[in-house]
């Protein structure tokens, strides 16, 4: 791991939060990263500095400098944790690493997380991919519909992006893997629990399944995590297909968030029985039926242009990113 990557973990990860010491929140890291760029420094520099040196270099207050020094003081303990996970085949990739999900960096800018835990082959991130999202409660008809679309997607050599939850997520994973496809999963809960399954472990080992998560590998499910996780799926995939959405559910809010931010084109099953699906289509999701295929995906621009009549697109101020910002 590079020194900058180490520094990002030391400052931002909550792997090793003791009493009275808080890691930097994503927003705080964002500010710090900006300052570092401004001062022509790199995160690793902070590891060797005293409190006074930090105050001077960053022109920050004593309290903040002390917090950094305290966090750096936990370095050794933190890397005990890191090596523990490493020994289970769970690694960390930070924004300072080239292998970090680059589509996330491009689409989410400063708001993408400082690091991900992952298991599997990060090269999968380079594949063209389509996300599949949907309810946890799926009927036989829902499953048939999703299976057909996933198979078509896999047949055209696209990877599947999923959230790894029960229902629609699991179906896309299983169908894709069993038909020789590749799957990228952004998990909202315990990666370790996921890795108890023999089939999952085998797929990860073979490089067919890549698991990523911002939460600690042994953490349980948390709604906040799940909501945050949605945008990683939309940022990673070239397009997302929503199979079935129920108002106020995770899929619903994910699609809504994407309709607002337009990370990628979102398709939605035009099924007359699912009024919530129809509502999303009304708000801008692209209606599809069982004949849909990835071969005629809409580009991001085409998708955005669907909205331009309604609203003036805000200037997206995605700046040139440095490696760690």
């Amino acid at each position: 791991m590079s020194k900058d990557a180490q520094a990002i973990l030391i400052l931002c990860s909550n792997l090793c939060v003791g009493e009275g010491i808080k890691p930097l929140k994503p927003s705080e890291w964002k500010m710090l990263a900006r300052t570092l760029v401004e001062k022509e420094m790199v995160p690793g520099d902070l590891l060797d500095m005293s409190k006074d040196e930090i105050t001077k270099a960053l022109e920050c207050d004593d309290e903040f400098a002390e917090r950094i020094v305290d966090l750096v003081g936990r370095s050794a303990s933190l890397f005990f944790e890191v090596s523990k996970y490493e020994n289970m085949g769970i690694s960390l990739v930070t924004r300072a690493d080239k292998a970090y999900p680059v589509r996330l960096k491009n689409k989410l800018g400063e708001s993408c997380p400082p690091y991900f835990f992952y298991a599997g082959d990060l090269k999968l991130l380079k594949k063209r991919s389509v996300g599949f999202v949907g309810s946890r409660d799926m009927t036989a008809g829902d499953i048939d519909f999703e299976t057909k679309l996933v198979k078509e997607t896999v047949r055209r050599k696209y990877a599947i992006v999923s959230g790894g939850a029960r229902g629609a997520d699991m179906i896309s994973e299983e169908v894709a893997l069993s038909s020789g496809g590749r799957v990228i999963e952004y998990l909202a809960d315990s990666m370790i629990r996921k890795l108890r399954k023999s089939e999952v472990v085998k797929a990860v080992q073979k490089g067919k399944l890549l698991l990523l998560s911002v939460v600690n590998p042994d953490a349980g499910f948390n709604v906040g995590n799940a909501m945050n996780r949605n945008k990683y799926i939309y940022a990673q995939a070239e397009a997302v297909v929503a199979i079935k959405s129920i108002k106020q559910g995770g899929t619903w809010s994910g699609v809504k968030e994407n309709l607002k931010n337009k990370y990628c084109p979102v398709y939605c099953w035009n099924n007359a029985k699912y009024s919530d699906n129809l509502a999303l289509i009304k708000e801008g999701a692209i209606a599809i039926d069982g004949e849909w295929s990835v071969k005629d995906l809409m580009t991001d621009e085409e998708f955005r242009s669907r909205f331009e009549t309604k609203e003036k697109l805000e200037d997206n101020d995605v700046k040139q990113m440095t490696l760690f910002s």
Binding site: K3, Q6, A7, L47, F79, V82
Partner: peptide, 14 residues
């Protein structure tokens, strides 16, 4: 063995 892995990961400021 575990120790060896921690040492491999240990950041240079320790």
């Amino acid at each position: 063995g575990n120790l060896k892995k921690v040492i491999a990961e240990l950041p240079s400021n320790v």
